[in-house]
Design a binder for these strands. Structure first.
Length: 290
DNA sequence: CATGCTGACCGGCGGC
DNA sequence: TGCCGCCGGTCAGCA
């Protein structure tokens, strides 16, 4: 599943291929049309599928940037600026190809949901196996309040201070630390994999209440998260489940993971345990983490 | 009003 | 081989 480092990899690969290009045509899958017609939640969130296709037509992709685990496509049409926001959910992936059969993996090829034809003739393709991804077409960030509430980028110089301040709020004081660091309004882009790894590295039990950790250790924890995210970006992300980068390549970070998905602690060889915290499976070493 | 919990969205895959 | 149920990021909606 793509987390911040994986999304960063996607954006770095995607940006140089599509920035400056103009979208001449958009086709959404019949699956999207059907879900929408049945009133179900679907990938395209805030707009009718046919309107989405229409409004995207003629848009120039000015810039592609990552914000937390979201991809922001900054668009422009006749001097007017818009934003197309995408989240990859669990299984979303982007491809830039000449034809769809260039998508090597069948499970992605079978689940293509949006095809943006560019003025160059290339196809910018969004595939999503489980359809947990999101696409929103908006004029301003304000149109979708959750985007405004996101914590600063973890590499922002104020992000640590922001995290420490949030921890002081009553609603976070008594929560398990893992739930707090995975909350996108506290720290951006720290998903299950990297939260698990950082807590293991710090020797902190994932269920420990936030207010039972000193401010100094919280700051260290933040730095650990930031360092792990950075390391993973450099490794090309973790290839877990269905994540691939835009070239269909796997990352290397999964070989460096020490606790996520492990049965045995790499330090003391105890059997790991798992708990459900904030609705998510949380693996930890009962001997090394307190 | 703020917070908190539940459910909805899915197909792959593990387990039986 | 077949089928059932689990898994998870995000947010809407309701208590």
């Amino acid at each position: 599943m793509p987390e911040l480092p994986e999304v960063e990899g996607v954006v770095r690969a995607l940006a140089p291929k599509v920035e400056g290009d103009t979208i001449v045509k958009v086709e959404l899958s019949s699956t999207i049309y059907n879900s929408c017609r049945e009133g179900k939640q679907c990938i395209v969130k805030n707009i009718e599928p046919h309107l989405f296709e229409e409004v995207m037509q003629g848009m120039t992709i000015e810039k592609v940037v990552r914000r937390s685990k979201y991809i922001y496509f900054h668009l422009q049409k006749v001097e007017e600026k818009f934003l197309f926001v995408n989240h990859l959910g669990m299984t979303g992936a982007w491809f830039v190809v000449q034809t769809l059969d260039e998508i090597r993996e069948e499970k992605f090829r079978k689940h293509v949901h949006a095809i943006f034809t560019l003025h160059t003739g290339e196809l910018l393709v969004y595939a999503d196996i489980r359809r947990f991804g999101e696409m929103r077409f908006i004029k301003k960030i304000e149109e979708h309040p959750p985007l405004l509430l996101m914590a600063p980028e973890p590499f922002d110089e104020h992000a640590c201070e922001f995290f420490l301040q949030k921890c002081e709020l009553p609603k976070y004081q008594n929560k398990p630390i893992k739930e707090v660091i995975m909350d996108g309004q506290v720290i951006s882009g720290c998903g299950n994999i990297y939260a698990t790894e950082a807590l293991f590295k710090m020797g902190i039990h994932p269920a420990r209440k936030a207010n039972r950790i000193s401010k100094m250790r919280k700051a260290e924890l933040f730095n650990t998260i930031r360092t792990i995210l950075q390391e993973s970006i450099e490794m090309g992300g973790s290839t877990i489940s269905d994540y691939r980068n835009i070239n269909g390549e796997a990352g290397g970070m999964q070989h460096r993971l020490k606790m996520y998905g492990k049965k045995v602690c790499p330090t003391c060889e105890s059997a790991t345990k798992s708990l459900i915290i904030g609705g998510r499976t949380s693996v930890y070493c009962p001997k090394c983490q307190h």
